[in-house]
Nucleic acid binder design. Structure first.
Length: 650
DNA sequence: GTTGGGAGAATTTTT
DNA sequence: TTCTCCCAAC
């Protein structure tokens, strides 16, 4: 079959086409919200493949697995299945792949374990307990974790981060440094990496090992990066190195939408891209296909005042629609009621529930609305703060699988043992030491030694597990990890769930579903385990949504709504102190980021946008705060929005 | 050392 | 609401 050739100018507007069909050399695409950024990237991939580039020589870096998957699928429909061989995934994913091949160069085993956020915080907590005497005054593990993470992602010494945070932190910086050292030391001792280490070590690999660097430089002829504005210094450097030889680097992003600086993202990466790649071509995408012009006017007006940005103006392509509304409301309850009534009205006018979203700054802002929706029986889905894969019961099951597969995973081993009756962290640790810091689940003798080390009350339960390990290795259950999980649940875990939780049934369901997911995974149990730490909520959520085609209203934080769109969008709690959040306001930079976040919220809407500003907020204790409408509303020029009041008054 | 009850706190969280 | 921490009782 002759290769099919796409007429790119037919599918793309001139700017998109210019970006997609550009020749070799660095390319920066400044793509404002809703201007077909993904489409351009997809066609770029298709173009390169049709032009004869082997797909495996293309590297497509994204920020979520979902984005990678979506783009891959779309590119396949344009250029055919051959596209499927290209390298795509998140930075963490790609670094993980590098490290699975070369981690031994850095003194790690190639089957190193990954600490997810929870594991990492738990380990930090242990370090605090073991090294800090006066813990009353010492910051909590979350604070320490974010300081350490900040330093890693900004590629700067922890001391600098601490200095900047000095006035908020009461603790002695040297003590925090001590904890951080201990944390690093313990990670090294057990040969594990946390999320940040994947980036740090991925980069080290490329920097310190010339042959590895040359190997990957030689593998990739083109490096394409999505959401470039949210890269941190490490990620930008990884891109620069990988594209260092071929010089074919395409960065796509929108500095207006950089909303992760608190995680180390630095929008200067995108601002300074032309400095680092002086001969780069810059293409601006400004024609917005998503939103009604009235919505874009609000978006343009709200972002205008931000300093330090590439000047871009969203240009509408759609015909006139309706002006966005600003609702002035009495309190959270009236807000919830009003939003619900509006949702109903839209629904009566033929709008599906899944075409509507409610966005907010922080999860807890949605409580009243959730309660109202639940009471009224209006179906909704909500993106929660914790990932499915971070929930205790899912992690328990995964710990079991890890122990089956890996005899060095101390964290998984101890977690599994803690599930036994009357056995806590202390004993689990002691047993691990006693076994010589290893436990081979396939080894009969070791299983017996473990039995002997247990207190009598836990032995019965352990026997069940020991039998299961035996089966695991005899029947080669590794090939179908889901089956192993099912049996684990049957012979042991179900009982535990029902003892430990009120909603044991619900959790068991999660686990049955997890088993299916594991079976679907190509690499068997081991392949699944190597990636599971990098899977997130959104990946899971997405599967569920697309499979169920559920007709539900979507409730989400603005952060998690990035990249998505809905015909109807409500932004609730658009008041000073909540959006912008008073917690994050301090310096001008913070105000700018909150404004970008607001911009992201506004630009999610296609046809209708409602901003809600209640005048007061009730606290748990029955107290009342008065709130002023958000500065982002106040700043809007007159006439851009329609002023309205709560439906309770009609 | 483990477990369970009660008090108290909660910004965002691509990996 | 849900998660986390701390203390007291096994």
């Amino acid at each position: 079959m002759p290769p099919r050739m796409t007429d790119f100018s037919e599918h793309l507007n001139p700017e998109q086409c210019e970006a997609a069909t550009a020749g070799d050399g660095p390319l920066l695409v400044l793509a404002a919200a809703g201007t077909g950024k993904t489409r351009t990237l997809v066609y770029r991939v298709a173009y390169l493949v049709e032009r004869g580039e082997p797909p495996q020589s293309l590297l497509l870096l994204t920020f979520t697995n979902r984005a990678a998957r979506e783009m891959l699928e779309r590119a396949k429909t344009v250029a055919g299945d051959a596209v499927g061989n290209l390298w795509s995934g998140t930075f963490h994913h790609v670094c993980n792949r590098f490290l699975r091949k070369f981690a031994d160069r850095l003194g790690y085993r190639r089957d190193f374990a990954i600490l997810d956020r929870d594991d990492s915080r738990a380990l930090i907590d242990r370090c605090i307990k073991d090294s800090v005497l006066n813990r009353k005054e010492f910051p909590k593990k979350d604070v320490i974790a974010s300081l350490i993470g900040n330093a890693a992602n900004r590629a700067c010494p922890l001391e600098d981060v601490l200095e900047k945070a000095a006035d908020v932190l009461k603790a002695d910086p040297s003590e925090i440094v001590k904890v951080a050292r201990l944390y690093a030391q313990r990670k090294a001792e057990s040969g594990v990496m946390d999320f940040d280490d994947l980036l740090v070590n991925g980069l080290r690999l490329l920097k310190e090992h010339e042959d590895v660097r040359d190997f990957y430089r030689g593998s990739f002829r083109h490096v394409l990066v999505d959401e470039y504005q949210d890269t941190n210094l490490l990620q930008a450097e990884i891109v620069d190195i990988l594209a260092g030889a071929c010089r074919n680097v395409m960065a796509v992003g929108d500095d207006f939408q950089c909303i992760y600086s608190w995680r180390g993202a630095d929008f200067r990466n995108i601002m300074e891209f032309p400095k680092r790649w002086p001969d780069c071509r810059i293409v601006r995408l400004e024609r917005n296909y998503r939103s009604a012009p009235e919505i874009l006017e609000v978006a343009n007006a709200c972002i205008k005042g931000n300093p330090e940005q590439f000047q871009k103006t969203l240009r509408p392509t759609r015909p006139a629609g309706v002006k966005p509304s600003v609702y002035t409301l009495r309190n959270g309850d009236e807000q919830a009621m009003t939003v619900m009534n509006l949702i109903r009205t839209y629904q009566e006018n033929g709008c599906r529930l899944r075409d509507m979203a409610v966005l907010y700054r922080a999860h807890f802002h949605s409580i009243e609305l959730q309660m109202q929706l639940a009471r009224a029986g209006l179906p909704y889905v909500i993106t929660s703060g914790i990932s499915v894969f971070e929930q205790a019961h899912v992690k328990d099951v995964i710990a079991f699988l890890k122990v089956c597969e890996n005899s060095n995973d101390r964290i998984a081993f101890e977690r599994l043992l803690c599930l036994l009756d009357g056995l806590g962290p202390r004993s689990a640790e002691a047993i691990w030491e006693k076994l010589g810091k290893t436990f081979d689940s396939g080894d009969n003798e070791q299983r017996d030694r473990l039995t002997a080390a247990l207190r009598v009350s836990a032995r019965g339960q352990w026997q069940e597990l020991a039998r299961l390990f035996q089966q695991y290795h005899d029947e080669n259950l590794a090939a179908k990890g889901g089956e192993a999980v099912e049996r684990f649940c049957d012979v042991f875990y179900r009982d535990y769930l029902n003892r430990a939780y009120d909603n044991g049934d619900k959790r068991e369901e999660d686990i049955r579903e997890l088993a299916l997911q594991i079976n679907k995974h190509d690499g068997g149990a081991n392949g699944f385990l190597q990636e599971v730490a990098l899977l997130t909520n959104i990946d899971h959520e997405y599967d569920r949504m697309s499979r169920g085609q559920a007709d539900k209203v979507y409730l989400s934080t603005v952060h998690q709504a990035k990249g998505l769109e809905w015909p109807v969008v409500f932004v609730i709690w658009a008041v000073e102190g909540m959006f912008p959040s008073s917690r994050s306001l301090g310096e001008a930079e913070d105000d700018a980021e909150e404004r970008r976040l607001f911009y992201v919220a506004v630009t999610r809407a296609k046809d209708a946008l409602a901003l809600c500003a209640p005048g007061m907020r009730c606290t748990r204790e029955g107290g009342v705060y008065y709130c002023k409408p958000s500065r982002f509303i106040k700043e809007l020029p007159r006439g851009l929005v329609k002023e309205r009041y709560g439906s309770a008054r009609f």
